[in-house]
Amino acid sequence: MKNLIALIILILTFAESNAQDVNKIVANLKTELDKVKDFQADLKVKIDISYLNAPEQVGKIYYKAPNKSKVDIKGFNLLPKQGSGNIVSEIINDPKNTLVYSGTEIVNGAKTSIIKVIPNDQTKDLALATLWVDESKNVVVKIENITKKSGTFNISINYLKFENKYYMPINVLVKLNVPEFSLPSTITGENAAKAAQKKKGSNTEGTVSFTYSNYVINKGVSNSIFEK
């Protein structure tokens, strides 16, 4: 009986400590995020999928706290469903998500804390998310999002400190699963031999690279930009 009580006390203590860890990490993350009220930056998006040949997309990204963001690319846009918006803010600010501390791991030479995110809102596509938080900078350097409909997204984020205050992403790499693509040459009207030659394989993993530059931070972004 004594052992059982000791075990319960141990679990409760651990759970309490876990909650404190997560709350502290998330609070620090929010503090860092809250420093940026708005920003705009130049954006380049490069997609690498075996069967897709798309030019680099060039445009601008705008953000205004708490939740307005817009990617403005002239012409056709092809952006991954995860990774192009302010995904960290969306995850940690959703009160319906349960956050669980899950240990530490070294990512790109930096010690990170792992936080599992369990969404309690069944209507959302997100099934489970994992965040790797670099506590020395209070930024999320890696995200794994498992979705119900769109597969798994692995997101790696590199930051640079601007104006000695703000850690902003300069490169975001999204790895995602894409289904195979195949149309028979009898439909496309293509020469069969040439079609077989052009088909580079059936690799179902794709990557999307976002490169941000020329940040303008906390200088004001008009609301009208988000209404267009």
């Binding site: 069967y51 897709l52 040949n53 798309a54 030019p55 012409g75 056709f76 092809l78 693509f181 195949s182 149309l183 040459s185 496309t188 009207g189 293509e190 040439k194 079609a195 077989a196 052009k198 088909k199 580079k200």
Partner: peptide, 18 residues
């Protein structure tokens, strides 16, 4: 006008100017 999509054995997207 606009960017052009070509769907055959692969998907190719060409910029409007191209």
């Amino acid at each position: 006008t606009g960017d052009m999509i070509i769907v055959n054995s692969n998907i190719t997207i060409l910029k409007e100017a191209d």
